[in-house]
Simulated assay, not measured.
Amino acid sequence: MKLRPKDPLLAAASGIALLGQGLSVVVAGATLIAAPVLFFLRDQVLTALSSEAGHAMPGSTVVAIALILLLVAAMAICAFVFLRHLRRIIDSVGHGDPFAPVNARRLAAMAWLTLAIEGLSIPVGGIGQWLAATIKDATSDFGISVGGVLLALILFILARVFREGARMRDDLEGTV
């Protein structure tokens, strides 16, 4: 049973999550293709970077860039799964059954995915700092997102709230 067949908020949230999933597929696909291509074009990449930097770039530069691309692909895959869980939660709200144990598990998984993305950002930032130091006019922003950690904490708490809500609903149904 649906609460509201055409709830605009749920429809918009689901659409935005779907758009985000599409974007994450594009990012993951592009980075997974670009990483091996870098090795095939290694000499051209090093020549271009060396001319930009004004000095010869070490071969490890290509490895570092490829590693960043692979880590970004992993982050995009985590984002895709995160948004898939979110869409399923949105669907359950639309069907009038959000306080289900599966949604508690989804929220906990979303929290872990958020922490995974934050964790993957650490080596990406570190490698980016190293690249920025070796390439002229390159910059890198490095740091843990307080917002990301806060989001994970909120999701863990919401998972407990949903787990308790599902338990209370089951208890109530058992008494009727």
Score class of each variant (00 low, 15 high):
Gly143Ile: 03
Leu32Trp: 05
Ala109Ile: 11
Val149Cys: 13
Ile135Glu: 04
Thr134Ser: 08
Val176Trp: 13
Gly165Phe: 07
Ala79Asn: 08
Glu118Ser: 14
Val25Pro: 01
Met75Gln: 12
Ala28Tyr: 01
Phe39Cys: 05
Leu19Phe: 12
Arg84Ile: 00
Ala132Tyr: 01
Arg105Met: 05
Ile68Tyr: 00
Ala48Asn: 11
Asp170Gln: 15
Leu23Arg: 04
Met57Ile: 00
Phe40Thr: 11
Thr114Leu: 10
Phe99Ile: 08
Ala28Lys: 01
Phe40Asn: 08
Gly29Ile: 03
Ser14Gly: 14
Leu131Val: 06
Phe80Asp: 02
Leu70Phe: 07
Ala111Gln: 02
Val63Glu: 10
Ile89Asn: 06
Ala132Gly: 02
Ala152Gly: 10
Trp130Ile: 01
Ala11Cys: 07
Ser60Pro: 00
Lys136Asp: 14
Ser121Val: 13
Ala53Leu: 02
Val45Ile: 13
Phe99Leu: 12
Gly54Thr: 05
Ala35Asn: 05
Ala73Ser: 15
Arg163Asp: 05
Leu18Ser: 09
Gly96Phe: 11
Leu70Ser: 03
Leu107Met: 06
Lys6Arg: 10
Pro123Asp: 01
Ile89Leu: 15
Leu46Asn: 02
Gly96His: 11
Phe162Ala: 04
Glu164Pro: 04
Gly147Ala: 13
Val93Pro: 00
Ala74His: 09
Ala34Gln: 00
Ser140Gln: 07
Leu131Arg: 01
Ala13Asn: 15
Ala104Ser: 13
Ile33Glu: 08
Ser50Ile: 12
